[in-house]
Amino acid sequence: MFRVFAVFLLAFQFIPIACAAEQKLASQEAREFFGIEPEMQQKKVPLKFKAESIDINYSSDVPLKFSVAYPEDIGEIIRINPLDVISIYAEPGENRDLTIDLTMSPAWSPSREEYNLYIAGEEGGVVSLQEIAPRSPSFTKTISASISHIFVDEPKLLSSVNFFYGYKVLGVSFVKVFGIIAFIFLISKIAYCIIFKKIKQISRSIVVIALMFLFLYDARFSLDLVKTTFTDLSEWVSSHEYRQLGPLYKAADYLRMDADLVEKDMKVAMCFDSGDIVHKYLRYDLYPISVTHDIDNWNKATHVVSMATNKLSEEDGMISCGDTEKRHAVVLKTFNKDVSIYRFIE
């Protein structure tokens, strides 16, 4: 049993963390709108044991977020795939118990001995970990994990058009394992036909084997495609939002409507932290309306779209984004999930 007695004071900036008891896998959350990332400090606790889950006993006066990453040793580099990280939110309290199921991530395997546990919380919080106890991997849990890993869907990312990560089971590429098995079957069949002088059967036999394996893999991938389509279509139809860009589409529609009401040509400035894709999309959707995100065009802009950022500051009817000048503005519309539209009034 592994015990950690650590009392530490964490200094954070204040943003409350939404509490949820449900454990989540990063690759499945990656398709969601990112929202404003609460600024927190976090502490890393390296763990060195084999485990299928860990039982934690903690005390905290602030909500916490526990995350587990699965480091991979590649030569001289330690690499962590952020998509394999699992996380769980924990409520504050004294001597509270929490169990983290490590097998949820496809990077888990019963032979894995290294994990990184991250604990994140708000400013001023006092957190202590009384106990971190691993549960040794069991055979039944390994079997159920390997089945559940096959059904972890491909992450839906902007990079998916360039490549797919592929399915992973017990920390190993499922494509590689399944492909090697298929290859062995093919070679074995060819060898069998040659040895037993059934040369004429070779073509037909290897076609059947290849098709069988291809169909099996395709069945899994087709399921993924169908689920993705239902999710994407239902999200778009019901809420006019789509994947990581969230309510940006609604913001674009609103801006187009407002363009008819302003006297001068609309020029939109963007204030955001996230990747450039939000700028690219808004610029495409609103073209030929100008959409920029640099400081130089802030002063010429007629509107601002603030998207999931802490950079926008608002005081006495004046707004600025990071180091830009403060300008008078009114908020036109606030969408849920941290997206707002302002119009400059000077």
């Binding site: 491909e154 490549f163 399944f178 291809l214 991938f221």
Partner: peptide, 22 residues
Amino acid sequence: DAMFSYGSFGIFWFLVPVFIAF
């Protein structure tokens, strides 16, 4: 890795070379 571990091609690159060699 791209051809044999990632998911872009499924297991095609394990099978196609066998048929090409044949």
